[in-house]
Design a protein around this nucleic acid. Structure first.
Lengths: 107, 107
DNA sequence: GCAATGCGCAACCCCAGGGTTGCACATTTT
DNA sequence: AAAATGTGCAACCCTGGGGTTGCGCATTGC
């Protein structure tokens, strides 16, 4: 579960969504390029990409002196499913409790 | 979108997941009660619950001198769907780019 | 009416993390 | 080989947020 928390934490930042957006529209890009149309430094972008990579939301591969990043949509989808499952578990538990309460008004 | 970010930020904390878990198993509980089986102060719990409430993940209603909190599974489910949709958009865009690249090898 | 119980508020500590700058190192390019 | 370009590393600043303690206020119980 800590892995999913890592994803959520990574996604809980507007700048990182902007990065992911740019990446999804470009298939791959370097930190330097991404930094050009964002209001932050290249170094800031690098740090954000590192966070996203640790979370599995982007992948990096070196090409000569450049480092190309690409988005990993599967990871996002995975996490979405995980959350949906959690929501379902909550619902089930609440339904059970409600059911028990109706059946046995005492307690 | 900032609303969803609020949810994600709220979920990016293990203690808050513990709270949500306890709540889902109990239907409703007060901060004081929740604090008893967590390794943090009641005040800390109160703060966490405030964050969760702002995100729409729990709802609070006063009952005399107590404040009962209950979990809102729909909000989690909503956010999960939203993320799944984002993942799909990424996929579509990447597929489009790939398609264009095949069709027009130049560029 | 008085003690007990449950909340709310405010001040404070501490550190993770978003952001910056400066510079050294590697790789292209000409 | 020299200049240009792209990364990496390290130190640093500063705000946000998780956590605590202390106390005052309301509600309930006896």
């Amino acid at each position: 579960m800590t892995a999913e928390l890592q994803v959520l934490a990574a996604l809980a930042d507007p700048t990182r969504w902007q990065l992911l957006d740019r990446l999804a529209g470009r298939r791959e890009a370097t930190a330097t390029v991404l930094a050009t149309d964002l209001p932050v430094t290249r170094q800031a972008v690098v740090k954000h990409l590192a966070v996203l990579e640790r979370a599995g939301l982007v992948a990096a591969h070196r090409k000569g002196r450049e480092v190309q990043y690409e988005v990993r949509a599967e990871r996002l989808d995975e996490t979405a499913r995980w959350m949906a499952a959690a929501a379902r578990r909550w619902d089930d538990r609440l339904a059970l409790i409600k059911h028990l309460a109706e059946q046995d008004p005492a307690e």
